[in-house]
Amino acid sequence: MREVSTRSRAPRILIAGVLVVGGLAMMFPFVWTVVTSLTPGANLGSPIRLWPENPSLGAYEILFTERPFARVVMNSLMLAAITTIVQLFTSATAAYAFSRLPFRGRGIVFAVYLATMMIPLQVLIVPLFAQLRTFGLLNTYLGALLPTFATAFGIFLLRQAINQVPRELDEAATLDGAGHFRIFATIILPNIKPALATLTIFAFMGSWNSFLWPLIVLRDPNLQTLPIALSGLQGQYTTAWDVVMAGSVISVLPMLAIYLFAQKYIIQGVASSGIK
């Protein structure tokens, strides 16, 4: 019995060991970034350390005193929050229409809309730039936000989630006199929370890490976003890597916070994905 028990535990121990090694490998870059940001005068040629030598918050002080980093962070937070909220609204309402409202050519329209996912942003930059210049929206927050208000991926994700909600719930609500708006608000949205949480993370992360479009549209230094400000921390000949790493740590913290907030809904979605 002991031999059988040992054999049955061996695969679990092996899997646990692989997961631990993989987790440590994934955590190491972040730990090294934090350690470098706390090490005064650190550079990429220094020996790799897991504990800072003479730890100091001087790099963070430089970011917020010698550079307008607080405004940069607020710019990115504002753009990411607005983008996420608007994408959740547009994606959820459009997904409900594609899933629950029958109309002629619905499948074709949805397929054409999904096909736009294959068009890279680089192809659209010139026409978008020309349109915004015509409307006088260059170098404005609205100009940076408009192209991000709708996303084909978000509509696809939420449509698939809505399709999993039993239509019998809609029919029962209709018999009670509920209309589409009430069904959408009281039945559909509560049942697709995991998908909404997933879209929240993707939308926030996409806006927070966006570099090319804000770089082209937002020329005013007071309107800069975090990725653009981080690229400006690297000098032409010398680079204060502790300051760069401090900026990198700050850029990771909001993403970590929003993931910790939404992870329970994502886990619920994974756990219930195979339940009929």
Rank of each mutant, 00 (worst) to 15 (best):
A42W: 00
S99H: 12
Q122A: 09
M27L: 15
Q131E: 13
Q87A: 10
I48W: 02
P55Y: 08
L128N: 13
M27N: 06
T140I: 02
F110P: 01
A25N: 06
F28W: 08
A59K: 11
G58M: 02
P47K: 01
L114I: 07
F103M: 06
R67N: 12
G136M: 00
L137M: 04
G58C: 03
P52D: 04
Q131V: 08
V31E: 06
E53D: 12
I62V: 15
M27Q: 08
T83Q: 13
F103A: 04
Q131F: 10
A92M: 02
S99K: 13
N54G: 12
N75D: 03
I108K: 10
P40N: 09
R67A: 14
S46D: 12
E61W: 11
P29H: 01
F129I: 08
L124H: 06
P55C: 14
A97Q: 08
A80L: 11
L88P: 13
F30V: 15
L79H: 09
V86W: 01
Q87V: 15
F64I: 09
L88W: 03
T84L: 03
L132Q: 09
S91H: 11
Y96N: 02
G41E: 05
S99Q: 09
A25D: 06
T39Y: 02
M74K: 14
G136I: 00
G107N: 14
Y113A: 07
P68D: 14
L124Y: 06
L79Y: 11
L44Y: 03
A95W: 02
F135M: 12
G136A: 00
N43F: 02
R106I: 03
V109R: 05
F110I: 01
Y96H: 03
L57E: 05
I62A: 13
V35I: 07
V126W: 07
R71D: 12
L101W: 13
S37A: 14
V72F: 14
V20M: 04
Q122M: 04
L132N: 02
T84F: 04
R133N: 09
L24K: 10
V72G: 13
Q122K: 07
P127S: 02
R71W: 07
V34W: 01
E53C: 06
T134H: 11
A111S: 09
T90R: 00
Y113G: 04
P29M: 00
Y113M: 15
V86Y: 00
G41Y: 03
M117H: 05
R133V: 05
F69E: 04
G45I: 07
G136L: 01
W32K: 15
F30N: 04
L124F: 12
M74L: 15
P52N: 07
M78Q: 14
A130G: 09
V21M: 10
P127W: 05
P47I: 00
E66L: 15
P52E: 05
V123N: 03
F89D: 02
T65P: 10
L57K: 04
T65G: 13
V21K: 02
T33L: 12
T93L: 15
P120V: 09
L57V: 15
G23D: 01
G58R: 07
